[in-house]
Amino acid sequence: MTLHILFTKDGIPGWIGAAPREGSEPVDGLSIEFLAGHRRTAKGNWVARVIPEPVPPTPEEIAAEAEAGYAAALEARDLALREALAAEADPQFFRWQRGEAEKEDWLAMVARVKARFPKPDRP
Rank of each mutant, 00 (worst) to 15 (best):
S24W: 04
D105N: 11
A80Y: 08
R40A: 04
E102T: 12
R122Q: 11
E88R: 03
A36F: 07
R116L: 06
H38R: 05
A18K: 09
A42R: 13
L3P: 01
E65G: 12
E88S: 00
A89F: 02
P52D: 05
A72S: 06
Q97N: 12
H38D: 10
V113R: 00
D105C: 04
E25T: 14
V113L: 00
R49E: 01
P120K: 03
L6Q: 10
S24N: 05
F94E: 06
E75G: 10
E22D: 12
L3E: 07
T41W: 06
L79V: 14
H4C: 01
A73C: 07
A36S: 11
V110T: 00
A86H: 08
A111Q: 15
A101C: 05
V113C: 01
P91G: 05
P13D: 01
K43T: 15
R116Y: 06
E33Y: 05
A71T: 09
P59M: 07
K114C: 08
R98T: 03
W96G: 03
I62C: 07
F7A: 00
G69K: 03
P13H: 05
I51K: 14
K9M: 08
A108W: 00
Q92V: 15
I62H: 05
K9H: 10
R95W: 07
Q92E: 15
A48S: 09
M1Y: 08
F94T: 01
P54W: 04
R116N: 04
V55T: 15
P59C: 10
D105W: 08
E22Q: 14
Q92D: 10
L107T: 00
R122T: 09
E83D: 15
Y70P: 14
Q92Y: 06
E25I: 14
R95N: 08
I32L: 07
A19P: 03
A76G: 04
K114S: 09
E22F: 14
W106A: 09
L6R: 13
F7Q: 09
L79Y: 05
R40V: 06
A42H: 09
P13N: 04
P120S: 00
I5Q: 06
E104I: 12
A86F: 04
G23T: 07
A87Q: 12
P54N: 13
M109F: 03
H38E: 11
D28W: 03
K114Q: 15
A108P: 04
L6T: 10
I12A: 06
S24T: 13
L35Q: 10
P26H: 01
E65N: 10
I5D: 04
D90N: 14
P91Q: 08
A48R: 14
P20A: 15
I32A: 09
E88K: 00
L85I: 02
Y70Q: 06
R77F: 00
F117S: 00
